[in-house]
Every structure is written in C-alpha cells, then in structure tokens.
Design a protein around this nucleic acid. Sequence first.
DNA 1: CTATTTTGGTCAAACGTTTGAACAAACGTT
DNA 2: AACGTTTGTTCAAACGTTTGACCAAAATAG
Lengths: 340, 340
Amino acid sequence: MKRNATIVDIAAHLGITPSAVSKAFSDHPRISAETKAKVVQAAIQLGYVPNGMATGLRKGRSGLIGVVVPGINYSFFSTAIKGIEEQVTVRGYNVLIVQSRDSFEVEKNQLQNLLRAQVEGIIASIAINTKNYTAFKEVAGRVPLVLFDRTFARSGLSEVTIDDFQAAVVAVEHLISMGYKRIAHIAGLSHMRPFSKRIEGYKYALNKHGIPGQQEYIIECAPNSNEGEFATEQLLNLNQPPDAIFAASDYLAYGALQIALKNGYRVPDDLGLVGFSNEEFSGQITPSISTIEQYSERLGSTAANLLIDQLTFEKKGKKYPAHKIVITPKLIIRQSSLRI
Amino acid sequence: MKRNATIVDIAAHLGITPSAVSKAFSDHPRISAETKAKVVQAAIQLGYVPNGMATGLRKGRSGLIGVVVPGINYSFFSTAIKGIEEQVTVRGYNVLIVQSRDSFEVEKNQLQNLLRAQVEGIIASIAINTKNYTAFKEVAGRVPLVLFDRTFARSGLSEVTIDDFQAAVVAVEHLISMGYKRIAHIAGLSHMRPFSKRIEGYKYALNKHGIPGQQEYIIECAPNSNEGEFATEQLLNLNQPPDAIFAASDYLAYGALQIALKNGYRVPDDLGLVGFSNEEFSGQITPSISTIEQYSERLGSTAANLLIDQLTFEKKGKKYPAHKIVITPKLIIRQSSLRI
DNA sequence: CTATTTTGGTCAAACGTTTGAACAAACGTT
DNA sequence: AACGTTTGTTCAAACGTTTGACCAAAATAG
C-alpha cells in the first residue's frame, strides 16, 4: 500500500507552498491559471486523492449522513435506503449505514458510533423494542434528525411516514365495496406506530360504514407468514368466521392465504384478502394478493431531502422547525380481493 | 445545534491540559486513577463525543470500510451487506455503502468517493457493464480490496464467491436424476462471472452424463422474469422443446413458470424447473421453485473478515497475498422439479 | 517617476486529537 | 544529604487541509 500523496507532496513537486495548491484546487481567484493547470497535472500524476478527514476536520463537516434501520435486508428498508443513498449522493454526501437489529441497546450504540464518525445528520427508523425517544431526542440536540416509517407517537421530531391510517381505510373500504361483510384484521404489533395506525384505520372504516367491530376479529402478531397462518386458523375457527381479512403485511396475508386454501376456502370468492407493502412476491403468486404500495424508495429520498434541507438551513444559523411529511400510499387491487 | 464539547473543554473544565485528558481516555499508565475518574465524569457531564475525524487524521485510520454494490435493494446484495455490516461492526469498523447502479461510470466515481472518505478497505461487487479491472486494480494499490460474487476472470484480486460451476452441476444432475432428458438453460449475461460459470457447469453436467448439448437450448438474457418469459417462449417453440429448464435466477425461473403454465404444461410433470438464488418468493409460490441457496449473508461476512484480516496484516507491514474463497452453495429441492 | 492598485503568491494559525519528550515534585536509597 | 527513580503531568509537534492576513513584484495611474 503506497502512502497517499498529499497537498504537501504536490507543493514540493512544483516548488510552491501547500496553501497555493489548496487554493488552486478550490479555484481561488488569486492563483494564476497556469499554476492551477500545473497543480491538477501534478495531482493526477501523483495520484492525489484529497484526505476527507483533514478537510472535514478543518471545515467542520464530514459529508456523512448516518442511517439507522432495524435490518438492511428487509426489502422495505433496503429500497428506502436505495432512495436515501441516491438522493444523498446527488447532494454531495455519503451514507453511513448501521443496523439496530431491532434491539434498543444496539441502536443506542450505533447512534453513538454515528456521532463519533461526525455524521452531519441522521435518518432513522426505530427498533421494534425501543419504547421511549430520549436517546433520539439527545441525538437531535446534536445533529439534525429525521425519522421515517417507524416513528414515535408525539416526539416533536421531524419525520416522514406513509399515511397508514388512510391506507387501512382504503383497503377496508375496498373490501366492503366488494361485498364482504365480516372483515377481520391481522395486525402487526400495535405498539409500533405504523401498525397502530392501520388498526385505527381499520376500525374507522368499519365504523364509518356501520359495520360493528368485533374484538375477536383483530389479532395482533409479529408480521411474518407463520404468525399469519396461526392467526388465520384462529379466525377461521370462530363461530362466525370472517369473509375477508385485511392483513397488516403481505407476509401475514401470505400465511392467511395458505391456511385458507388448505381449509378449502376459495380466494377471493369465500374469503377476500388484502395485504400491505407490495412485496416482490405478492404480485407473483396465485392468486395474486391485493396490497398497499408504500412507495418506500420515495419515502427514503424524501427523508433524505428533508434532512439535508434542515442541515443547510441550520448551517446558516436559522432554526428549522420539525417537519412531518406524510406520503399517501396506493391500493393495488389484485386477484385476492376481486370478486365479481 | 450545540457545539460539540472537545477534549479542550474538558481540560479547561478540570484545570488540566488536553493531553492529560487524552491520555486519561486511553487509560495511560502515567495518569492517576483520580484524574481518570474526574475526566470521565466531566466527559459525560459535558456530553463529550470524540471527534472521529480528528482521531482518524491523527492516527491515520478512519475506521471506515467501503462497500460498493450495484444496488442495495436487490435481495442478494442487501443480505450480503447485512453480513458485512455485522461482521465489520464486531471488528470495530463502520461501513460506508455506495451503489454503482450497475453503471461503470458511477462505480468509478463512487470508488473515488470512498477513497476520499479515507476508507481503510473496500468490499465490492462489480457493475454489470464494467469490462476491465483497471479501476479496481488502481484502488487495490491504495487500500485492501475484496471482491465478492461478481468478480473478474483473472484479476489477481482477493475475492469471495460461491461455486457457481458446482451449483450448476448439482442442479442439472438433479434434473437428470429426476428423469428429464432434454434440459435447457436460461442463462444470465455470460460476460458476468457467476453466469458464465453456471453455463460451464450446465454444459459439464450434460457432457458427463452423455447428454448431447444443443446450442438452441442455451439462451442468454438479463436475469428478470420478463426476459425469462421471452426465453421460455422461444424454447417451447422449438421443434424439440426441452422437458426441463435450469434457470440462472429465480426471476428467470418464475418467468419460465408463467409461460409454461400458460401453455398448458404441467410443472414438474411436463417441464422440470430449477432456479437460482433462493429468493424470498420462490419457496412461497405454487408450485414452489427448486433453487440454489447461495448463503449470501455468509458470503458478506466472509468477505468482511477476509478484508479486515488483510487490513490488520498489512498494517504490520506484512504482505498479504490475494485470497480466493469459494463457498459451496446448496440445492434446495422443491415442487418444480420433483416428479415421482 | 513616484504612488497606488493588481497579481500571485507565502505565512501562520486553526480544526481536535495523539504521543514522545521533557520536567517538577515526591519518594526511596545509600 | 546527595542522588536515582517513580509519579503525574505539561509541552510541542504532528496528521492534511483551509483561509485570512500579509507581502513582494508587476502593472497601472497621475
């Protein structure tokens, strides 16, 4: 590994001072065109790459944005990160990504890591078992912070979310319009914001259309297909089993589908089904599952823009109040809920 | 945003010098236990977070590992990154992730970004249209570099791959053992290493079992379901259509499945099918698709370990020769190829 | 031909930390 | 009591870059 050439090497090479070189790079008006040319020449010749840590230290900026998500491999988060990365790159930043692995402790540690790395801002989606926002409030006192998707109830922090309430309403109203009468909801864990909103929306839609809600029609569980199967078994064993299920995730919906088919239900004829998130597979299986498109990539890029806006604003010493941006999701109607 | 407390602030606060504070933090033997205690006290009181750029500059290390992938949202890469992130974190590094968006130009730029950020090593999977490895060779002259999955033919660079050849052999032999006679291959783009290896393995397996290969039975295309559909139409329109297809990706296999079913083929009875990569959906659709598990997370963590090993080695001034690590993938037999 | 402006730099300090050398005070040894 | 050692700290330089102040020479003005 050869030592990196520095501005000093270039200066020595040309018989000028380092500061002249620095100014040449930044196109300073007091440096002659000739010198500038020689400097870039020497730079490529010596394979010069500016030392980001040095410039960062001097200029008080790292050019780094921190991102903390429960897990990068969840397709929702990975596409959100795609959106973040692209936007952030466009605006001249790099992105430092860490995982909380849905653990509060790890999350805290990782936030600390990001601060130590001198990130200029943080975009985060909170871990599933993070109950209070003190750690995040603390962080927000140091660098701009934007939460996305998984946020806190009333934290006063900037956030970008999708309108889970509205999405649930639309999904349920769609089922109602298809003539389903007894609509159940397999919910996610209700202490997480997105899921609680979906529950609220579900209840609201039923109520709005004069359909009595039943306690047994709402089952909370972790959003994976196994739990979906389990929940569906419970539902179908009720005295009055539902004739439609609104599931809080496509994985839950998939589990529901499996159990329904296994028990001889025809989907959508005997049982309507709407999922959530528009996972890759949900459009590809048979019957395809109606779902909610969350625009996760746009969610990411929106969060990135909000953060950087805030960043540049505060650099000018101006106060930037907390913003809440809500993205409206879209219902995708597929076979699983389309009965004629 | 309050200015971050520095070591100087702590020093002033306690009436000692910054260097004493620094030494206290690093548990220097010449600093009294009493002072050390006072320093950590003051540190938490003032909310001190060490400035990574300053320490990095001084110590000549950033604690950053760069990762460049075509796209973070491809499930293969996102799970590989999960593996990388976790391993790298354990070993005290952070990970700077960039996307090449499968563009050679972007890739080059992003590599430059990483170097500027002073990453201590880079883990990369090359863009689809990157034809030569000069840029990577260049990078490898500056920091340790490990390629994974998408690598160059004979670059002399360290790499971690899965045994695509062997995987293809196993897949095709499985089809043969199931009694399929005319086995076609929907391949990826053959200039990419993993795909060319799969083609070789496919040919080798046929040859080994005395099955004559046919040129029309191999179709190269981009690995998505649309292309898979297209390729399958071609195959099924041949005078002698195949009775089994080994597809170089689950998406291709999925496309094949769609077209097969549409044309009245029963899968696996009339047409056997094996995909590649074990994507989320391939186990969930009906019929479920036999496939190859690539252990992408382990691929990532292995690459991370290899890189950091090399890193620590070279820090001691020792030369670390290029390593090639090959992970053996596993055939997962599901409905699409299991005929009795 | 002196005075002023412009041109093209150089100088030095600073960003926050680390680290070897230096040093004063306290202690132990003969 | 003189000397060596240990203890606990301060000093100063360094990492690579940026930037305002400064300066000498050349160009322009009066």
